[in-house]
């Protein structure tokens, strides 16, 4: 290389001896971080990072709040690809009464991740049958 010719061999070896321990430490740590990151991202490439989203919703908690009832849920994306604008719909149905539907949109659910949210109802969901599911998503 151009530079090697200019600096000369003696100068190069001299500076190599003077590399401080902190530089070795910083460069070594950096190398480990680089390899670690590359490894983890590379692993995802070959382990289903490209399967389209599959979202399941679980109800975590139901409680009366001011003005109605609150249902907390967690939506889990079991596949590798992220989903955007995931619409979650909850429906309370019971014998002899009208169904009540509430909706919420979650901005993102990354691959194999969980996002939490809540729905409000005016009727007690514990009195009827509550179903909560994801109705759709968009690709990010």
């Amino acid at each position: 290389m151009n530079r090697d010719r200019r600096t000369g061999a003696t100068r190069t070896t001299k500076t190599e001896q003077r590399v401080p321990w902190l530089e070795w430490l910083a460069a070594g740590l950096g190398l480990i971080l680089v390899l670690g990151l590359f490894g983890m991202i590379g692993w995802q490439v070959f382990n289903g990072a490209t399967t389209p989203p599959a979202i399941t919703v679980e109800v975590e908690d139901m409680a009366p709040v001011e003005g109605g009832y609150r249902v907390l849920f967690r939506a889990r994306n079991g596949a590798g690809e992220a989903a955007a604008q995931v619409e979650i719909e909850g429906k309370v149905s019971g014998p002899g009464t009208e169904n009540e539907t509430s909706r919420v949109v979650l901005d993102y659910i990354p691959g194999r991740s969980i996002r939490r949210g809540g729905l409000f109802f005016t009727r007690d969901p514990r009195a009827g049958v509550l179903t909560v599911r994801a109705t759709g998503f968009a690709e990010p």
């Binding site: 600096t7 530089e23 910083a26 460069a27 070594g28 950096g30 480990i32 680089v34």
Partner: peptide, 28 residues
């Protein structure tokens, strides 16, 4: 790193070490 690293470098090895260190700093 060759043109302006956080230290003066003399070889490709040192430039690579600088780059790793900068990467580590960036990640942290």
């Amino acid at each position: 790193s060759y043109f302006s690293g956080f230290e003066k470098t003399f070889s490709l090895k040192e430039d690579a070490m600088d780059a790793f260190a900068a990467f580590g700093v960036g990640v942290i």
